[in-house]
Structure formats: structure tokens, C-alpha cells
Design a protein around this nucleic acid. Structure first.
Length: 490
RNA sequence: GGGCCGUUAACUCAGUCGGUAGAGUAUCUGCCUUUUAAGCAGAGAGUCGCGCGUUCGAGCCGCGCACGGCCCA
């Protein structure tokens, strides 16, 4: 990126002249011994450091600067927070202070000093020794308004992280959330694995995949839309409790709710049913919320969401008729359902089978209303090609989806482990694909073969991690919880 | 894919009726050893997203395009 602006040019010139004076602008011998948080902890433990503070040796980025001729106040920021420092020429010496005079906001500095309280009572570091650690040759955004332009925030996330403390907090929370899910499952003897991102047959979900090509193998591959069929191969292999937290890729639209690559937790437990997973899900979300927020009540936008179990449960049919306002008598009449959908300006294709029509109606009429955690059960078999059929009503499956704050958060079911049934389901999907449904599942003959060796009864679930992070950080857009959301090239 | 809004200095933003581009911060110079959006004095800094059109004259009006935001599909 070529920049001709005067401000940038002057920054470069200044750095060049400092280097010409023999100063190393990028040394790597400053040894950090403390963090900003060490100072706060030390102050708490000693209440007040009256008989002289210990020496602290820390480094960070200069994020503010107030100069007074032969002294200055500035704040530095490290990974644990920020602290004010006070530097005086007669403390650090004339030579060192001359270098300090050339320090700008944005530079990295190393400081050795003691803690003291200023006239206004702010605990600060009195600088005894000062070091330039890394020079910035491009100015930081404005100190008061910071960086606001959403496009710049996403394209130059590092600036967003430097300038906006709430953004740092969101991503720290994201890390804690992932850790909490991981710890919860590991504690229950689940084994964390990694399965292929590049798959010859994209399976495990209804979605359009990204295509790629392997030169040496001379074959087309797809970025995975889900890890499901590989994780279940591991269950067949005897990994009775297994999970993966990783990226899925779906070649679809970008919105406040969708990024082409997103993070999914998927887990499988042998000898469990979807009912067991409903209970486990309640426990898991309570655990994560307590770890991250210390509470089971979430404030999301205008809603207070209560995670205390048990959560509401409702069948898909009941939800459609009670919450969706759909007349119960049209449930079995496809023509009337299509007419009902058209009345509500929900576009449907004639080729859609009954289950898909119900799902579309649900998305529009019911989903936005499910604010408190709700498990929807009783999903039709034709839209659940990997789920076990319900033993008393084979038109339905032993499946649930979890909704919170009007969004789908998780999807789980008792797994279909009958290879003959699975093959028939795949064949129906292939027929749907031939009829024009681009999102229908592919036939995966090798997966059928794996099932033929025998898979224990099991239940599995996927949890949309980005959506959970949005929920726990009160984020409106998925771009606020993904470091580098996809944008078009400029 | 459609609708609405945005794009002006490094950053945050003004810009009237179409008449040679403004502020604050930042930068540079000078003064300043307890400030915290420090202060005072002075200076420099612009491809007004890109292109075409209308006009004597366009940041402003019209058309097209690009990128972004929100909403809808």
C-alpha cells in the first residue's frame, strides 16, 4: 500500500532520522518481567505501597501522551490492561529523555520503575529507566473517538483491538467460551479430535459447498460443510465419546448471521439418546454461562434470557399451530400449506416436500418468537436424513433443535445406525438433488459401508459457537465475534 | 438479487442556494516537571471513493460502477 500523505511521510522521516542517529528502532533484548495486572495485584495485596514500591519491569504500547516540557504522563497498554506512567528528565537522564521526546502514540516502550500515586490519586508508574522497544511509523486513530468506521474495523482488526477495549473483551470472552465447552466435554470423558476439512463428498448438512482441487491426487475436493460423517466413523471405530470444535464452510450468503466459514462444536456419545443430549445441553450451557458470565441470566438486546433448566420443549407441529398461527387441519394437506405460506409471503417451490415446507414456515412464523431457550422436537423424517426414526411414528425422527433469542443455536438427534435405512434416506436425497434441490445430501457409499460394520446406538449434536458467542457478548452481528469476517476485496 | 443509508485530511466529523475545502484530534515549531480529551502561541497537511454527464463553474445535481452498513428475499 503506497501512501503519499504528509502525516505518514513525516512519520517515516522521523524514524529514519532516529535510526541515522544510531538508535535501534527494533531491538529485541528488552526482557519483560511484569504485566500491568501484576501491578494492580501487588497494590491490592499490599493495600498501599507506602514504604517504597518494588521495581516493575514491563512493556506495552503507548496509547496516550501528555507532555510538559521536561516531564510527561502517558498510558501504556499490554495484554492485561493499561496503566499511566510518569517520566521526568531529571529521573531518567537527559540522554534518555531526548529519545523519549521522539516517542509517539503507537510506539512500544519498555519501562522500569516504581509505583506511586499522583495528585489526583491515580496509581501510576514512576519511570526510572526508559527504552524504545518498537517504533510505529503510522499514527494510531484519534484518541477520543477511536476507530469507528466498520469497514476499517474489520479490515484492520488490529487497530480495532488496540483502540476499542470492548472489542478486546468480546474476543477474550470468545476464547473463554470455547475453553468452557472443551472443559465440559473433556470432564465427561469426550475425546477431542480433528477430521478432514477437505472432503471428497461433502456431507452431514444441507448446504452448498466450496470446491477445491488437489493437484497431486488429481481430484476435486470440497471444503467441509460439517464433520458429522467422519465423527460417526470414529464412533464406529470405538471412539465412543468424541467431539470436534472447528470450522465449517458454506458457500452461501453473507449477513449479520452468516459468515462463509464459521465455528461448530459437534459431539457424539454412544449409548445416549437425543433425550440424554437435551439434558446434557442444558447442563453444558449453564456451565459455560457460569464460567464466562458467572451467571445463568443473559441480557441479550432487549431480552433477559434465563438459562436455568429445565428449558421449554415443544414439538414442531405444536409450535407451528400455537405460536405460528397455522390451522392444525392443514398439516396434512400440502396444497393448503402452500396457500397458507403464500398468504404470509413465504416463497416455496412446488418441488419442496412436506417437511421442507414445514421447516420454511417454522423459520418465518415461529423461530423469531423463541426467545427463552426452547427445544423443538418431532422433526419430519424427510428433512432429517441422518436421524433415527421415532419408534412409534416413523414419519418423525428423534431429533431436536435448540432456539435461543430467536435463533437456532444447536441441532441434535439420536443417530441413524441402520445402514439399510441410511442408504434409503441417501437415495431419497439423491432424488431430491436430481429434482433440483442443490442443498440435498450426496450419497456417501463409504459411510454406508462403515455403518455396515456396526455402529453403537448414539446421539450427536452440533452447536453454533459463533452464535453462542453473540449471545453471551450481546453482539448483533456475527462480524463482531469473528476476528476477520469475510469482505470483498477493495 | 432488491430497498434505504454512507464514502470529504492519518482518525472523528461539518460543509448552507452549485461559486477556488472546514473544525477537533494527530503531526511539525516554540513555551511548559502532577496531567488525564492537559494548556498557550504559530505552521503545514486534501485525487471530496471511481468514471461519465449537466453547467461558465460540481464535494453538492443526474447516470453508472466499487466498497461498506442496516433491512428484505
Amino acid at each position: 500500500m503506497q501512501e503519499t500523505s504528509e502525516v505518514i511521510r513525516k512519520c517515516h522521516e522521523k524514524a529514519r532520522s532516529m535510526a541515522a542517529d544510531g538508535l535501534d528502532l527494533y531491538p529485541n533484548d528488552f526482557k519483560v518481567e511484569h504485566t500491568v495486572s501484576d501491578i494492580w495485584r501487588s497494590l491490592e495485596e499490599n493495600k498501599e505501597i507506602e514504604e517504597g514500591s518494588p521495581i516493575f519491569i514491563l512493556a506495552g504500547r503507548v496509547i496516550s501522551m501528555r507532555r510538559f516540557g521536561k516531564a510527561a504522563f502517558f498510558h501504556i497498554l499490554d495484554r492485561t490492561g493499561k496503566i499511566q506512567a510518569y517520566i521526568q528528565q531529571n529521573e531518567v537522564g537527559k540522554e534518555s529523555y531526548a529519545i523519549f521526546k521522539k516517542i509517539d502514540r503507537g510506539d512500544y516502550v519498555g519501562l522500569k520503575g516504581t509505583v506511586f500515586q499522583t495528585k489526583t490519586g491515580e496509581w501510576s508508574l514512576l519511570v526510572h529507566e526508559f527504552f524504545l522497544v518498537a517504533k510505529a511509523i503510522r499514527p494510531l486513530p484519534e484518541k477520543f473517538h477511536g476507530l469507528k468506521d466498520p469497514e476499517k474495523r474489520y479490515r484492520q482488526r488490529y487497530l480495532d483491538l488496540i483502540m476499542n477495549q470492548n472489542v478486546r473483551e468480546i474476543f477474550l470472552k470468545r476464547s473463554l467460551i470455547v475453553q468452557a465447552f472443551r472443559n465440559f466435554l473433556v470432564d465427561r470423558d469426550f475425546c477431542e479430535v480433528e477430521t478432514p476439512m477437505m472432503q471428497p463428498i461433502p456431507g452431514g448438512a444441507e448446504a452448498k459447498p466450496f470446491k477445491t482441487y488437489h493437484n497431486a491426487l488429481g481430484m476435486e475436493l470440497f471444503l467441509r460443510i460439517a464433520p458429522e460423517l467422519y465423527l460417526k466413523r470414529l464412533v464406529i471405530g470405538g471412539v465412543e465419546r468424541v467431539f470436534e470444535i472447528n470450522r465449517n464452510f458454506r458457500n452461501e450468503g453473507i449477513s449479520t448471521q452468516h459468515n462463509p466459514e464459521f465455528t461448530m462444536l459437534e459431539f457424539y456419545q454412544a449409548y445416549a439418546t437425543y433425550e440424554d443430549l437435551i439434558k446434557l445441553t442444558e447442563e453444558m450451557f449453564v456451565f459455560v454461562a457460569k464460567e464466562v458470565l458467572g451467571d445463568t441470566t443473559i441480557v441479550y438486546q432487549d431480552n433477559e434470557i434465563n438459562l436455568n433448566p429445565p428449558w421449554q420443549r415443544m414439538t414442531l407441529y405444536d409450535a407451528l399451530t400455537t405460536l405460528g398461527g397455522m390451522p392444525p387441519e392443514i398439516l396434512d394437506d400440502k396444497e393448503k400449506m402452500i396457500a397458507f405460506a403464500t398468504e404470509h409471503t413465504i416463497p416455496l417451490q412446488k418441488s419442496h416436500r412436506r417437511g421442507k415446507i414445514l421447516a420454511k414456515l417454522f423459520d418465518v412464523l415461529v423461530e423469531p418468537k423463541l426467545i427463552q431457550p426452547t427445544f423443538i422436537t418431532g422433526y419430519p423424517t424427510d428433512i432429517s436424513p441422518l436421524s433415527r426414526k421415532n419408534s412409534s411414528d416413523p414419519s418423525l425422527t428423534d431429533r431436536f433443535e435448540l432456539f435461543i433469542a430467536g435463533r437456532e443455536i444447536a441441532n441434535g438427534f439420536s443417530e441413524l445406525n441402520d445402514p439399510v435405512d441410511q442408504k434409503e434416506r441417501f437415495l431419497q436425497q439423491v432424488a431430491d438433488r436430481d429434482a433440483g434441490d442443490e442443498e440435498a445430501h450426496y450419497m456417501d457409499a463409504e459411510y454406508i459401508q462403515a455403518l455396515e460394520y456396526g455402529m453403537p446406538p448414539a446421539a450427536g449434536e452440533g452447536v453454533g459457537i459463533d452464535r453462542v458467542v453473540m449471545l453471551l457478548t450481546n453482539a448483533l452481528s456475527i462480524r463482531e465475534v469473528i476476528f476477520f469476517p469475510h469482505l470483498k476485496n477493495k
